[in-house]
Design a protein around this nucleic acid. Structure first.
Lengths: 143, 143
DNA sequence: TATTTTGTCTATCGAATTAATAGACAAAAT
DNA sequence: ATTTTGTCTATTAATTCGATAGACAAAATA
């Protein structure tokens, strides 16, 4: 499940990516236009900045902008920053691996193998979709 | 994210599927063998029963057993019973659809289209995997 | 029929997480 | 000096998750 926070992060990035390169955009503008609670959005953008996805300028005439080209920003990465691993279960996560306490033998765990497939198909999509591609999803027909 | 509850449910079903058809199995046996808290497991099995996945017999010599062939039990269905929709976001769920409050136009929402792809790939796997197939995952190589 | 063994049902609890709010602070422009 | 902006940390309210508790009901059998 994608958290609201992660959804807000994606919305904000999409919004910024639609602006001219390096154009400074106010938190309050994004907040109003995308209907995201401002104080909540502040935290999100700050976190994006800490992970070098965004740059900012303080003070009057300040604002946020993308720190790299949208085609270098991968959606999977953004979601991981906010929500943690994409894997449906920690024992099939690559970065966030954790053993199941109750698992008797991981090597033969059927559930693990199935969830690994789910993880892989999800990551296949999200780690191969850039912000640029996300912007161009309009054309993609999904019924 | 798969909840522990759903994981326990799957473990219990796998356990039951490995038994002889219609063999009665005690909650406490499953609890011990699969290391699932017994009282928690009770609730889970009861819910499976309500959804006609399991049958049970009360009293002495009682227990649980699968109410249908394992190749008629779909993993996606089980997870939905316990955790709700498989979709990463409610606006792309088929059964559990809900509009995003803050969404300005769902038809053009890029995030929605991407998440629809994630939903579809996940459901493709889970709605086409039966309990029988899950049992046979041993052979599947997943590195 | 009394006892034991099992599943059934409902309530409750503590911890963690999520979504959001609050407010003091710091930098930059004018 | 003032205003406008982002920065940082704390707190809160609500919800969910994982688990526990205990009274109850049915079935077998002694």
């Amino acid at each position: 499940m994608l958290s609201k926070k992660a959804k807000y992060a994606l919305k904000a990035l999409v919004y910024l990516a639609k602006k001219k390169e390096n154009e400074l955009v106010l938190i309050s503008e994004i907040s109003v236009q995308e209907r995201i609670p401002k104080k909540f959005l502040e935290q999100i953008l700050l976190e994006m900045k800490k992970h070098f996805i965004l740059h900012s300028k303080r003070g009057k005439e300040g604002g946020y902008y993308l720190s790299k080209n949208p085609d270098e920003i991968f959606i999977g990465n953004i979601i991981r920053i906010i929500d943690g691993p994409l894997a449906p279960i920690p024992c099939v996560s690559k970065l966030g691996y954790q053993k199941c306490e109750e698992c008797i033998d991981e090597a033969t765990c059927e559930i693990r193998k199935l969830m690994k497939q789910v993880r892989d198909s999800t990551c296949d999509i999200l780690d191969n979709t850039t912000l640029t591609q996300l912007l161009n999803m309009k054309g993609v027909v999904v019924l």
